[in-house]
């Protein structure tokens, strides 16, 4: 049962939705920039093409770690997705503390990028990996603080199911002042988790040529790309479960769910298209400064019941 869940919802459904999300992102970006944009199957074709390419392992790299890292990232994303889906479909059956597990699992893809980058022993990859590490350190604190707000609202329960059920009764947490502030912080942290502009310093194509991914080719690169596309679905999905009442999979609810998701995705796309890349020190200052303050304020507001 768990295996089925992992395979079907964690991997299959999530990757299909993730690839679609990636297409929406690319298409909207293209239209904003007076371009035509790719057809809907382009992200899938990209992955398939990469799977057919030769996998090169650079001389001097730590072979097993270099090849294992993408798998680790993909496994983290799949597990996180299946926990979220399980919670979405049967909110009552989750276990206490799955909120912590998901927060933890969501950092695994970033960790795998850091590990893979360092394992390849390329100077640009090391630079990108160290930037990714700095970025993880900077956004995790405000992200966790912001994600604590729904926990407070649902009566201090660290079970995702309780958070969802509480929203079904009392309405989405984004309706509260603290909820909307925390969601804003969460959205910007997601931007950094996805390594999208303005927080794409770890991958910065024009500076360090995709940083940690520079030495990857073939299957390894395909796995990273797939993980990234899946994260483009998983992170907004998590945000929606936390603040917007999750998805509803019956009747008109499906349309409403799609609208929620596309709305969050559109925000992410707009942010990435209207900003230049910030330097890594600026990103750290941004997350440790204003973002942490806003997240802390929203947490205090939530504790006060606002």
């Amino acid at each position: 049962m768990i295996l089925l869940n992992l395979l079907v919802f964690g991997f299959l459904v999530t990757s299909i939705l993730g690839l679609t999300a990636s297409w929406v992102d690319r298409k909207v970006t293209a239209r904003v920039q007076y371009r035509v944009g790719p057809p809907f199957y382009q992200p899938l074709v990209d992955i398939i093409k990469l799977l057919g390419k030769e996998t090169l392992v650079p001389t001097g790299s730590y072979r097993s770690v270099f090849l294992g890292a993408p798998l680790l990232g993909l496994a983290g994303a799949v597990t996180a997705a299946s926990v979220l889906w399980m919670n979405q479909i049967h909110p009552q059956t989750g276990f206490t503390g799955d909120w912590i597990v998901v927060i933890y699992l969501l950092t695994i893809p970033s960790m795998s990028i850091i590990i893979g980058g360092f394992a390849s022993r390329n100077p640009l990859a090391s630079l990108g990996a160290s930037r990714e590490m700095k970025l993880v350190l900077s956004y995790e604190l405000p992200f966790i603080l912001a994600m604590l707000v729904p926990v407070v609202h649902s009566g201090l329960s660290i079970r995702l199911g309780d958070i969802l059920l509480a929203q079904r009764e009392a309405g989405a947490f984004a309706g509260n002042l603290s909820g909307i502030l925390a969601m804003l912080v969460g959205l910007l942290c997601i931007q950094a988790k996805l390594a999208l502009v303005p927080f794409d310093a770890p991958e910065a194509e024009t500076e360090i040529v995709h940083g940690p991914l520079i030495e990857y080719s073939g299957t390894g690169l395909a796995m990273y790309k797939l993980t990234k596309n899946m994260m483009l679905f998983i992170l907004p999905f998590f945000l929606i479960q936390m603040f917007l009442g999750g998805f509803s999979l019956a009747g008109w609810g499906i349309l409403w769910s799609v609208l929620k998701f596309v709305g969050v995705l559109a925000l992410i796309t707009v942010i990435r298209n209207t900003n230049p890349r910030v330097r890594i020190d600026q990103a750290m200052r941004f997350f440790w400064g204003p973002m942490t303050v806003i997240a802390a304020v929203s947490l205090i507001l939530a504790l006060l019941g606002l």
Binding site: T29, V32, Q33, Y34, R35, V197, P198, D200, A204, E205, T206, E207, N273, T274, N275, P276, R277
Partner: peptide
């Protein structure tokens, strides 16, 4: 310059 800063919208608009 926009492209180097990761600001691809400026890139495309200027070239348009």
């Amino acid at each position: 310059a926009g492209h180097f800063l990761g600001y691809n919208t400026v890139y495309m608009w200027a070239w348009k």
